Amino acid sequence: MNETAPAPTAPLRARAEIDLAALRANVRTLRARAAGAAVMAVVKSDGYGHGAVPCARAAVQAGATWLGTATPEEALQLRAAGLTGRIMCWLWTPGGPWQAAVEADLDVSVSGMWALREVTEAARRAGTPARVQLKADTGLGRNGCQPGEDWAELVGEALKAEGEGLIRITGLWSHFACADEPGHPSIAAQLTRFRDMLAYAEGQGVRPEVRHIANSPATLTLSEARFDLVRTGIAIYGISPSAEIGSPADFGLRPVMTLSASVALVKQVPGGHGVSYGHHYVTPGETTLGLVPVGYADGIPRHASGSGPVLVGGKWRTVAGRVAMDQFVVDLGGDEPEPGAEAVLFGPGDRGEPTAEDWAQAAGTIAYEIVTRIGTRVPRVYVNEE
């Protein structure tokens, strides 16, 4: 997990600047929108590429009372870094570190009988009850327990384990499939199914601390889905879950990551000069080329070859030809910035630079992937930590 990089003593080849003041402001904005529900800051996948530990600390400073990760290993790393309070993890496979999770006082998700058996056995070995949240599949079709007989069995066996002092059922939860598509019929269907499955479990005697189904898009757009807790992931990093529901500014959010690199070379070339592998770009006339020293090994999507936007010298440029492993080229159109000049791939957009959403459109993907895929060769430099 990325920790704070020391202040650079020389210009960096590339850097991902992480504005923790923006993250804290985003969390406060989401708390206000959640209207009384608690906020979970999701810091899985190393904080969506931003650095899990610094982002988790900033989110807690801003009032997030839960932290969320996908894997138990991610959650245990947060504990090892000194983060206290409630931490939930939900992506388990058989033989996972259940006992370590129980001993670390994590909330663990259970979707089926095999997982309930493993966590109760871990609780016996640990000599302390496990915090367990039962996940319902209300229509996403991934993890979660199916309604009907499967849910009845899981609830019944969980209550039995709770009666034996092996677990505490701390939550009932689910996840939306299409909350980022306003008006999609699955949204209402999932809410109805979730309420039905909650009613069954509570009718059998489950008394959860929290009930939750809202992810970032539901937190932003569906007041009826907020229940006791909302799980905000991409939104705390200042990125809209989808352009269809609105821009970050529409929700009072500010992008947290700015990705930039130092131009490595500027040179004049004649017309008809091929650029990068395959010569998919050939200069239309005499021009200048700038070499930007990041590539797909750093997480720059190869699918953005010929389309990825970059701000150099105050002007938008476009990736010329293919993105290579370590570098790509932009056509500067005759301009001659000095080597070492800043090339901004994406940021909040304040200076006219592209955003992560612009790169997502160029690569035919989503902004989640753009920020999350930025690799470990790019140092994270944290600003506004206090």
Rank of each mutant, 00 (worst) to 15 (best):
A70K: 00
A32S: 04
S216F: 13
G36E: 03
V383Q: 08
L134K: 02
A38Y: 09
W66R: 09
P284R: 09
I374T: 15
A343P: 01
K315P: 08
G313E: 04
E164W: 02
V206S: 01
G308F: 03
G82R: 12
V230N: 05
D105K: 06
V282N: 10
S109P: 09
I169S: 03
R377P: 10
V39K: 05
L222V: 00
E209I: 11
T4N: 14
R377S: 07
S216T: 11
A343F: 13
D107S: 15
T65P: 02
S305F: 03
Y277L: 13
A10D: 10
A14M: 06
E118T: 09
A25N: 11
V110D: 03
V39I: 08
T287P: 06
A7W: 13
L154K: 11
E118Y: 14
E244F: 14
D150K: 00
A101D: 05
T288I: 08
G171V: 01
V381C: 12
I366L: 15
E74C: 09
I366C: 14
H303D: 13
V330M: 00
G274N: 06
I239L: 15
D196A: 15
M113H: 12
G63S: 02
R31S: 03
R131D: 01
A7C: 11
I187N: 08
R380D: 00
D250G: 11
R79I: 04
T355I: 07
V39F: 09
R302K: 15
G352M: 08
L106M: 05
A38P: 14
R168M: 10
A80K: 05
Y48V: 03
R373G: 09
R317S: 07
F176E: 00
G308C: 07
P94W: 11
V60F: 10
P8R: 07
K315H: 15
G36S: 03
R317G: 01
A136W: 03
T120R: 06
V119W: 07
T372Q: 10
G183C: 09
R86N: 05
R28N: 08
D298A: 07
R86P: 01
R79F: 01
I187L: 09
A123P: 01
T376V: 14
E353D: 07
E121S: 13
I213H: 06
F346M: 12
T128K: 10
G139D: 02
E386M: 12
E385C: 08
E73Q: 12
A218L: 10
H184N: 00
D350N: 08
T232V: 14
P309R: 06
G205W: 14
A5P: 10
I169C: 04
R79G: 00
